[in-house]
């Protein structure tokens, strides 16, 4: 049946839509009242690990070059010891900016991009998931915004889309439990109380028995995702930009449990090759150097117990010192040249 399109006098239509507009406005105001009463008393979780973003950014803002700035996900937060790095690298001012990999590579880079100056050194320990699958989690991004709203500035378009899409569902979660603390609140591994004055997590010094098992093998299929080219290019342009500001950027493989390494060895080799080609002289370690027996792992892949953490920090600190002593060309030549 063809559609019936009714024509009305324009004045009548405007009056009618005006009345409707008032009714809709009253209805929405009522819903906001309901929302306010349901959400009354809700406050952000002061124990949440992502709250450490405030402290880390304050450290970054308050310090000046030359600094060693650590960037990455939890492999940096739980896998590096800043005092050891300071001691071995010769850079006394160390700031660990890392939180968790699902915040995404773009946000990690954007957080420090505008702060780099002559004499700064960045150590970025990526996680393999950044190249394999899109690990960015809207949930973590929203939790970060809850703790530090200004982090919105560091998010890329894709991350903002994710946040916007999930925001209604986050509100639903909040309403379901006004006293909601987030699933990590009661987990000592993710407690902000263990963050030291450099921004490292010191939980490995306090917790030795970990209930959570080492997770299953690394799921990496580079061919499927096609993400590697985009991510390598991001790192390359970040390095070039840093060099233009007088800062050096070095990269390190994350600590991986031996079985996981074996299962993903072929993909890791591809990642290593691509990074070595795009960032010559910038990788501080070989993939195999970052493998560990299961007894070295704290609660999952990438997270180390205290002693292996110190060993790893010493190794990377020594290598930074070694590289800094060499005369390095600033910046990265374009791949096409």
């Amino acid at each position: 049946m063809p559609p019936t399109i009714e024509r009305q006098g324009s004045t009548q239509a405007i009056e009618s839509s005006g009345r409707l507009g008032v009714r809709v406005a009253i209805f929405l105001a009522l819903q906001f009242l309901v929302l306010a009463s349901l959400g009354w008393g809700y406050s952000r979780n002061e124990h949440a690990l992502l709250g450490a973003a405030r402290q880390k950014h304050a450290l970054l803002d308050a310090s000046g070059p030359p600094r060693l700035i650590l960037v990455g996900g939890s492999s940096v937060l739980y896998g590096l010891d800043s005092p050891t790095l300071a001691e071995t690298s010769g850079l006394s001012s160390v700031i660990n900016m890392a939180l968790t990999a699902p915040l995404g590579l773009e946000l990690m880079l954007n957080e420090v991009r505008g702060h780099l100056a002559e004499g700064d050194v960045v150590l970025l320990s990526f996680e393999y998931e950044h190249f394999c699958t899109d690990v960015v989690s809207a949930r973590d991004l929203i939790w970060l915004l809850e703790q530090r709203p200004i982090s919105l500035e560091d998010m890329g378009v894709d991350q903002l889309k994710l946040v916007l899409d999930r925001s209604l569902y986050h509100l639903g979660s909040v309403l379901r439990s006004r006293s909601w603390d987030g699933p990590r609140a009661h987990d000592p591994i993710h407690d902000i109380a263990y963050i030291n004055r450099y921004g490292d997590s010191t939980v490995s010094q306090h917790v030795d028995e970990v209930a959570a098992p080492i997770p299953t093998l690394l799921d990496c299929d580079l061919g499927r995702s096609g993400l590697i080219a985009t991510q390598v290019e991001k790192l390359r342009s970040f390095t070039t930009e840093a060099a233009a500001n007088g800062a050096e950027v070095y990269y390190a493989h994350p600590p991986l449990e031996a079985r996981s390494f074996e299962s993903a060895q072929a993909d890791i080799a591809v990642i290593h090759r691509r990074l070595s080609e795009a960032l010559p002289g910038r990788l501080l370690s070989e993939p195999v150097e970052a493998t560990h027996p299961v007894r070295d792992m704290l609660d999952s892949n990438y997270h180390l117990r205290h002693a292996p953490k110190l060993r790893r920090s010493r190794l990377l600190g020594d290598r930074i010192l070694e590289r800094q002593k060499r005369v390095e060309p600033r910046g990265i030549e374009p791949l096409t040249s």
């Binding site: 209805f27 009522l30 819903q31 309901v34 349901l38 809207a138 949930r139 899409d165 999930r166 209604l168 569902y169 509100l171 639903g172 979660s173 309403l175 379901r176």
Partner: peptide, 20 residues
């Protein structure tokens, strides 16, 4: 009607899943 609409809106908020 408004009571029903409001009830349903908040039922959606309370029963919606955690992820999109």
């Amino acid at each position: 009607r408004w009571a029903v609409y409001s009830g349903l809106i908040w039922l959606c908020m309370y029963r919606m899943p955690n992820d999109v």
